[in-house]
């Protein structure tokens, strides 16, 4: 059985008479121990999907209007607030995208790492702080004994994100959701952090949902990939499928826009024309059709459904692009 099953998730935002369909019918599974990457550009609904899993959508204006999110067989959307609180930070942890602002500036990092332990393991503060030291060592922070009493502003961005990871790992969660964990960090630090995340998830046999727009990261760390566009999944498959045999024009566009090391420097990158649609006003038919070079009449009228193209590989497109 899959660890997490998201079925037909719809998360909408209601603002001044218009409805923003940030997530509009998304379904995917996460198997135990696997790393699933959700990729897409800004505004494609990646983060909202992640927040929906933990029911962290601010309401109002947001609301999960339809769908099911089953974690270990239980529907999170049916749970009471207490049950969800018990899940958060305990079975499912979330790592936020901005290490600069996701730590409380007036509390020491030790206190913040200790918090989930206090809450979910009912440990007294001194015990929890001891565990915080162990966790700091696990995320390779030098002088972890002293660092527990540091404040966030005394740490670098990379170290803060390590602290965030330590916080997430504190209760050995089954599922970790990392929402663009490496944006705002420099490239070498990014690689170290992803390596660390991978290492820790392997050790704890946890699953990882990696939300990112960096395809280089995805290629290296993900087992399976979900490509999102305008609140829907356009293609889904193993990392190998997506990189070697992309089927959706959007995925193909993404692949063409990545610079390659062995590429001739005179060769230009091919951008995807246009801009992502306004989510309050998504085009008829396939949301990608105005930007798609393969679009046919059907694409402007009917919305494509997610259909298998091979075992475990799905796409939502009317056109057989590869032929």
């Amino acid at each position: 059985m899959a660890l997490l099953e998201v079925k037909n998730l719809h998360t909408h935002f209601f603002a001044e008479g218009s409805v923003v369909k940030a997530v509009d019918g998304v379904s995917f599974d996460v198997e135990p121990g696997e790393t699933l990457a959700i990729v897409g550009e800004s505004g494609s609904g990646k983060s909202v999907t992640a927040m929906s899993i933990l029911r962290l959508i601010p309401n109002p204006p947001g609301e999960i209007v339809d769908g099911e999110i089953r974690f270990e067989g239980q529907d999170i959307l049916e749970m009471t607030d207490e049950q969800v609180q018990d899940l958060r930070g305990n079975k499912i942890a979330m790592i936020f995208q901005e290490p600069m602002t996701s730590l409380n500036p007036v509390l020491t990092v030790g206190r913040q790492i200790a918090e989930p332990i206090e809450l979910h393991r009912q440990a007294p503060l001194d015990k929890a702080l001891e565990m915080a030291k162990v966790l700091l060592r696990k995320v390779h922070i030098a002088e972890h004994d002293k660092r527990v009493s540091s404040y966030p502003h005394q740490l670098s961005g990379g170290m803060r994100q390590r602290v965030m990871i330590a916080m997430g790992m504190a209760c050995e969660p089954k599922l970790i959701i990392a929402d663009e964990p490496t944006t705002a960090l420099d490239v070498t630090v990014q690689a170290q952090l992803l390596e660390l995340l991978k290492e820790l998830t392997r050790e704890g046999h946890s699953s990882l949902i990696l939300i990112t727009h960096d395809l280089g990261v995805v290629a290296r760390y993900a087992d399976r990939i979900v490509v999102m566009y305008a609140g829907r999944i356009v293609e889904q498959g193993t990392a190998r499928d997506i990189f070697e045999r992309p089927h959706h024009p959007y995925t193909i566009g993404l692949m063409n826009s990545i610079p390659k090391l062995d590429q001739d420097t005179k060769e230009k990158l091919i951008p995807i024309p246009g801009a992502p649609p306004d989510l309050a006003n998504v085009p008829e038919g396939c949301a990608f059709n105005p930007r798609c070079e393969f679009a046919v009449e059907k694409c402007r009228q009917q919305r494509p459904t997610l259909e298998p193209v091979a075992v475990g590989h799905y796409k939502a497109c009317w056109v057989d692009v590869r032929s």
Binding site: D86, G89, N104, H120, M167
Partner: peptide, 9 residues
């Protein structure tokens, strides 16, 4: 939000 995401009441 981060604190809420670790289940803090």
């Amino acid at each position: 939000q981060a604190t809420e995401s670790i289940g803090t009441p």
